[in-house]
């Protein structure tokens, strides 16, 4: 498994595609987490299954947790749950890359 993260439109998707042309790629992972929350799913359990089913996946996500804590509880939960989900994916990944200004920085 590999993870690419960055702020909105920082180029993480392009870099992920270029570096992994043949991989099974999951873009907008933060939106997938949002859908899980909205559908009332157990996110950690769903992620466990996901990791078992897609051990070689390339995950691409926006970093959404670096703002003022939102007043709305669903927005709050989304940010925190996405953050924790990315910790979980990163722990299982052989490589984690943070992308800023289109520049990939390998942090694992």
């Amino acid at each position: 498994m590999k993870l690419y993260i960055g702020g909105t439109a920082q180029g993480q998707l392009d870099i992920a595609r270029t570096e992994n042309p043949d991989a099974e790629l999951f873009p907008d992972f933060h939106l997938l987490i949002r859908r899980l929350i909205e559908n009332g799913k157990d996110v950690p359990a769903s992620l466990q299954d996901f990791c078992l089913q897609h051990p070689d996946a390339v995950i691409v996500s926006d970093e959404i947790g670096c703002g003022i804590v939102p007043m709305d509880s669903i927005e709050r939960e989304w940010r925190q749950t996405t953050g924790r989900a990315l910790c979980m994916i990163a722990a299982r990944s052989v490589q984690v890359t943070r992308v800023t200004c289109g520049i990939g920085q390998r942090i694992k």
């Binding site: 970093e63 959404i64 947790g65 670096c66 804590v69 940010r79 925190q80 749950t81 996405t82 953050g83 924790r84 989900a85 990315l86 910790c87």
Partner: peptide, 13 residues
């Protein structure tokens, strides 16, 4: 020693 730890929401900080 003084250490400052920063990070976003749910980052594991």
């Amino acid at each position: 020693m003084n250490v400052l730890v920063t990070g976003g929401s749910g980052s594991g900080k």
